[in-house]
């Protein structure tokens, strides 16, 4: 992408960028900084969440301390489903409305959904090793989740390989709509093909009484925390996409201007 912009960076610019004030997190130029506030709240929630997980939640009677991975593993998976639901809805909205903001929401949600589902898989493996005695087993739950991961990684790759932004948006929308079916399959997989993976503790398949009361409260708190994190990350990623679009727009008009200059008499 490096082309016309290979101008030397003035050092004063960098100095300007690195100046950071805590008050900027809440207010910038007299306006409330929504993203900054959300980051602050999310950060506090994440610290409180750690306290809840290690100090408030009881130790599991069978698995011992390692069961505390549960408070990260389960919310990570559920929140990635929420992110993919956002991709699904935004993709449908884009197909009907053809507005860039819907495509940006779908793109941002898919990228962050991939981050969350990757972590759900990794924490799951770390939990499985001491409990199941294996890092990975080709059970339906794990396999369908890996397929889910692959679908959304492919979504991101297809977008970046597409010949133009509007093609990327429409390929993405198609994948975002079809791909969501696997989220449903992943959720119901433990009921359809029972195996070694525990059954859900949240949602329609949850078995009441499968979870200690305090554990349920800590889990709910953790899910809230991760939802806040998801919202913050999506907003930050969409802001980045706005900047990318802005830069593309400027470059495009510069290029058009240069071409018109080059053709005399036009």
């Amino acid at each position: 992408m490096a082309g016309t912009e290979e101008i030397q960076q003035p050092t004063s610019e960098i100095a300007f960028q690195s100046k950071f004030r805590w008050s900027d997190m809440i207010r910038v130029d007299g306006r409330i900084n929504l993203r900054g506030c959300l980051l602050l709240v999310t950060g506090i929630l994440m610290l409180v969440n750690l306290y809840m997980i290690f100090m408030v939640a009881p130790t599991d009677a069978v698995l011992g301390h390692v069961q505390r991975i549960f408070y990260f593993h389960v919310p990570l998976a559920i929140v990635s489903f929420v992110a993919f639901l956002a991709v699904f809805i935004a993709s449908i909205a884009y197909v009907f409305r053809r507005e860039t903001k819907w495509d940006n929401l779908a793109h941002a949600s898919a990228e962050i959904g991939v981050v969350f589902i990757t972590l759900a898989l990794v924490t799951g493996m770390i939990w499985a090793k001491p409990v199941w005695n294996a890092w990975w087993l080709w059970t339906p739950r794990l396999t369908t989740t890996l397929i889910l991961w692959l679908i959304y990684v492919a979504y991101l790759m297809i977008r970046s390989y597409a010949p133009s932004p509007s093609k990327a948006a429409i390929y993405g929308a198609a994948m975002g709509i079809i791909g969501f079916a696997d989220v449903v399959v992943v959720y119901f997989s433990v009921q359809w093909w029972p195996g070694i993976h525990p059954t859900p503790v949240v949602g329609p398949l949850a078995d009441t009484g499968s979870l200690d009361g305090t554990m349920r409260s800590v889990l709910l708190f953790s899910m809230l925390t991760f939802l806040a994190l998801l919202t913050y990350l999506i907003m930050e990623r969409m802001a980045l996409q706005d900047t990318v679009d802005q830069l593309r727009g400027i470059r495009f008009s510069l290029r058009r201007a240069a071409r018109q200059d080059a053709i005399p008499g036009d």
Partner: peptide, 25 residues
């Protein structure tokens, strides 16, 4: 004995998650 020797796994799971969030931001 009780499975209390699992603390390194517990630590690894939380460390990896936090590290990934930080790096992404």
């Amino acid at each position: 004995e009780l499975p209390s020797s699992n603390l390194p796994w517990l630590f690894a799971a939380f460390a990896v998650s936090w590290a990934v969030f930080f790096l992404y931001v």
